[in-house]
Design a protein around this nucleic acid. Structure first.
Length: 289
DNA sequence: AACCGCAACAACCGCAAAGGG
DNA sequence: TCCCTTTGCGGTTGTTGCGGT
């Protein structure tokens, strides 16, 4: 494991949000060389980041197959069930949610699901995870009211999904295999709930036409000392900055999910990335590819 | 219009495990 | 076997935007 050949001079590593240029450099490097010794990546890719930061950025943001945007009802159920079963083993939970990172799952839990569970357990009748799951599918107004603003409007409005009376294992196995189609209420307001979702395929250059500015606002794509806006807005910009580009096929993955299920399955087909996949080492990647 | 609180999420930090020399 | 480095993981923090007052 040790990579003594990866000599790295002690330097002041850049911290904070990644600029589009840094993303581009890292992405280009990985696409070209595959995954190897992370500690060597910054120097070789011309980045003033430490390897750890590069690894995190790749895993959580740049990696192929990442599915961003809202969690589907099924994904939510999986998280709730597995969290109850495994505890805060986010990496393990994320393994059951293809396209999701442990960080994303963790954030989603901490910022949303945990409150819901606490709220449910705070009542006179503490609910089991299964009950919670059922609740999540039968209380259309709850999460919607909790997320009445921001872009993160949960898709639990009026879901007619039948309650998933199954244990986490079953849930996870469902998630691993072909997931059932999402029961999407016809009245779901996709205008209101605008998922910001994109996957790596959106980034992969059409070789002759790709440029950073095609995906990033020119103002942030041109200078070296850019300070990109916060991630949330970042994501919004991503979604919004497709501009003339055709909308990604999964842009409305909640709707698409009704036909294709969760996990972005099928998105991967858009790419021929065998070289990259071959270099993947993380458990998530093992699962995904 | 300004301020405040909340929510979302990217990224950092620290620790432990893994593995090579 | 020990030491050192890298990697992986979970907890936590920082930043930003939005809605409400």
């Amino acid at each position: 494991m040790g990579c003594r050949s990866c000599e790295k001079p002690k330097m002041n590593y850049r911290k904070g949000l990644w600029s589009p240029e840094e993303d581009q450099r890292l992405r280009d490097y990985i696409l070209k060389h595959g995954l190897g010794c992370w500690s060597a990546v910054p120097a070789k890719a011309g980045l003033q980041r430490n390897g750890k930061s590069c690894r995190l950025r790749w895993i959580n943001y740049l990696r192929p197959g990442l599915k961003r945007g809202m969690f589907s009802q099924e994904e939510e159920d999986v998280v709730i069930n597995l969290q109850a079963k495994l505890g805060n083993k986010w990496s393990q939970i994320a393994m059951h949610l293809p396209g999701r990172t442990d960080n994303e799952v963790k954030n989603y839990w901490n910022s949303y699901l945990k409150k819901r569970v606490m709220q449910a357990q705070g009542g006179s009748n503490p609910k089991s995870p299964t009950e919670l799951t059922s609740m999540s599918t039968t209380e259309p107004s709850m999460s919607m009211s909790m997320h009445h603003h921001h872009h993160h409007v949960k898709n639990s409005s009026g879901s007619t999904t039948t309650s998933h009376d199954q244990d986490a294992t079953n849930v996870s196995s469902n998630a691993l295999s072909a997931p059932p189609p999402l029961a999407q209420p016809p009245s779901f307001d996709h205008q209101q709930a605008q998922p910001k979702s994109f996957v790596f395929s959106d980034w992969v250059p059409a070789p002759e036409s790709y440029s950073v500015s095609a995906h990033w606002p020119a103002s942030t794509a041109s200078s070296g000392n850019v300070t990109p806006s916060h991630g949330g807005a970042f994501g919004d910009q991503m979604s919004g900055s497709y501009g003339a580009l055709p909308p990604p096929p999964h842009q409305d993955h909640q709707a698409a999910g009704a036909a294709t299920g969760i996990a972005g399955s099928g998105y991967f087909d858009l790419l021929n990335m065998g070289d990259i996949y071959g270099g993947f080492t993380s458990t998530n990647d093992d699962l995904l590819f």
